[in-house]
Design a protein around this nucleic acid. Structure first.
Lengths: 234, 234
DNA sequence: AACCGTCTGTTCGGTTCCGCACATAAATTT
DNA sequence: AAATTTATGTGCGGAACCGAACAGACGGTT
């Protein structure tokens, strides 16, 4: 049971609900802390909880046989995890890993499913978000096909910035490389190039964004495209 | 109104419905021919009809600004078009182009939406298919990131073969290149390599598959992965 | 202060794929 | 039969990225 949720910020999807609908849902929720490196789900797991991040960032990671995990999208307080429950699918296709510590509202899967069936207003909002998620998958697919690493790195950094509202990102180049599905050396080069353009700087284990607009210009169209889809749909 | 539909084969999604449910749906449907090159939808269009291919193949194509269209997936009688209506989204995100002539069952969008709300059995089946479509998007995204062109070409050819049940594919290398998002020359080389391995042969405007198992071995894991997801979900 | 593990920088050769250009070959039109 | 269009084959230089290896730099530990 959640009362003074505003003390922790809030989730933008839940904010789109009417006060009534949200309050009703929150009576079944609990606020949990999510900690860097924590794995919230593994592919194949049965979904027990649905998570709405309030603070912090979770990566949504796909693996295909023979290749390592890579990041499909980052999920912060603009989104949720386990959207497939809307379709009645209770098995997770991806791994979800906490990339920035924070808090999330979570609700047992069974109650979530029940609430979605009972409240058309809820499913209306979440259906739209499901569509956003599908379009993000199409976008990253095209991005992987057409765009250069430096642009994709810029995009990923902007996604972090946007979801954390912080210009400092605590992450190593090796982690960024794994997220992008490339070698660490590739990230070193791309990051060096962005630094030489005075868009970012970095020290051991963290990246600082200096020029957001410049970084947007250096990133591929995908960052803005994802945002545009989200704003249009939600 | 469709009676003797079996004369034209059938759609595997609709076949999963109970006889009652299917018959009820079919009273609102009509059978239309779909012809090579015909564009069934453009991105941004409002959905007027939902299509269930019975014979023939439709490509589902995404474009991002600054890059050409490329093929996310092929849809034959195992699938349907405009699945986003399930989520209440009546705008198409992609272009749909007929790649092999045939027939499709179509139903007006409004009636489809109505039927989905009325019949839980219908939405159950289609929700699962929606999940298949999402997983296909994740798979092609990873495929674009990790797999070599020759393997991806083999995969695409197998997708054609599987959906048409024919070992001869009427298509040019230029069209294949556009589908894969690469140069025509790249396809020429990859196809030449597959031919030298006696897996396929080709003449002006068509490819003939000689060794399906060999082609599966030469393709990336994505072909089998997509099939496995479909079979598991449906 | 010395050590060790982690993070970043750099180099090397090799492969894939790119853009561009041009040659050949098959089908279609005139 | 000749001309035109369309489809396929080949060559060239270059960019992006790969795998592997190693060097240096920074932090925390003992």
């Amino acid at each position: 049971m959640l009362n003074n949720l505003t003390a922790f910020g809030s989730n933008r999807l839940l904010n789109l609900l009417t006060d009534n609908c949200r309050q009703n849902l929150l009576t079944h929720c609990e606020l949990v802390s999510i900690n860097l490196g924590e794995v919230l789900s593994n592919p194949g797991d049965v979904i027990t909880y649905v998570y709405f991040p309030v603070e912090g960032i979770v990566s949504w990671e796909k693996q295909i046989t023979g290749s390592p995990y890579w990041v499909v999208t980052l999920i912060g307080n603009e989104g949720m995890l386990c959207i497939s429950l809307l379709l009645g699918i209770n098995v997770r296709p991806c791994r979800a890993v906490v990339q920035k510590s924070g808090f999330a509202i979570r609700i047992p899967a069974a109650i979530f499913t029940q609430q979605v069936e009972l409240k058309p207003a809820l499913s209306l909002v979440l259906n739209r978000y499901a569509n956003v998620i599908y379009n993000q998958a199409l976008q990253i697919a095209a991005c992987n096909l057409f765009h250069l690493l430096e642009n994709r790195l810029a995009r990923l950094l902007l996604m972090f910035q946007h979801r954390s509202q912080s210009d400092e990102i605590h992450i190593t180049q090796d982690q960024l490389a794994k997220m992008l599905g490339v070698r660490r050396v590739g990230v070193t080069k791309a990051a060096g190039s962005l630094q030489r353009k005075n868009l970012i700087s970095y020290v051991r284990g963290s990246v600082i964004i200096h020029d957001i607009d410049g970084l947007k210009a250096a990133s591929c169209v995908c960052y803005e495209a994802d945002n545009a889809t989200y704003n249009k749909m939600m």
